[in-house]
């Protein structure tokens, strides 16, 4: 028996390997879908004028996977036509300009997958236990805080 290639898939991956947008888009391709919407988050080389020389991510891996699955469940409740969802997040050292996160979502028509991708990345920043440290040229380092996170300095305002 071959698996039904068109049955909905939730693909979640946390990895120390370099991310590939081709792999993500291929993983959500399906014959009945006219749209694949993608978001690629990349690492920046400056923060408030300071040169960033290295970025490093760490995760509470099993809980991060659980929270990513919850996002998939929410997407399917809100946009029932969404077919496949792929969320990949990189861990460890990520060189500047490389992807730290890629989201790919397919749906028969573009509106649903576009909205779902936006929801996915916004929710990921608010709820998935992953942390980023920026290391600056001055050798200082700082743990970042997403404004979407409800218990961050910005999120509490």
């Amino acid at each position: 028996m071959t698996e039904d290639v068109d049955s909905p898939r939730d693909l979640i991956k946390l990895t120390h390997e370099k991310l590939s947008s081709d792999v993500v888009s291929t993983s959500v391709t399906c014959p009945s879908c006219g749209a694949i919407s993608m978001f690629i988050g990349t690492t920046r080389d400056t923060f408030e004028g300071q040169k960033v020389i290295q970025l490093e991510y760490e995760a509470y891996v099993p809980m991060a996977e659980l929270e990513m699955k919850k996002i998939c469940t929410s997407i399917r409740a809100e946009w029932p036509t969404v077919r496949h969802i792929c969320i990949q997040h990189r861990l460890g050292v990520v060189p500047v300009m490389e992807a730290s996160v890629i989201v790919g979502i397919s749906s028969p028509h573009r509106a649903d997958s576009l909205e779902a991708v936006r929801f996915c990345i916004d929710t990921l920043k608010a709820t998935v236990p992953i942390w980023k440290k920026e290391v600056y040229e001055t050798e200082e380092a700082s743990w970042k805080q997403n404004k979407e996170c409800l218990w961050s300095v910005a999120g509490k305002k």
Binding site: Y57, A59, M63, H89, V101, W131, K132, N146, C149, V153
Partner: peptide, 10 residues
């Protein structure tokens, strides 16, 4: 049990 500082994934 885990101590969870502000998140910064993405």
């Amino acid at each position: 049990v885990a101590v969870i500082p502000p998140l910064s994934g993405g």
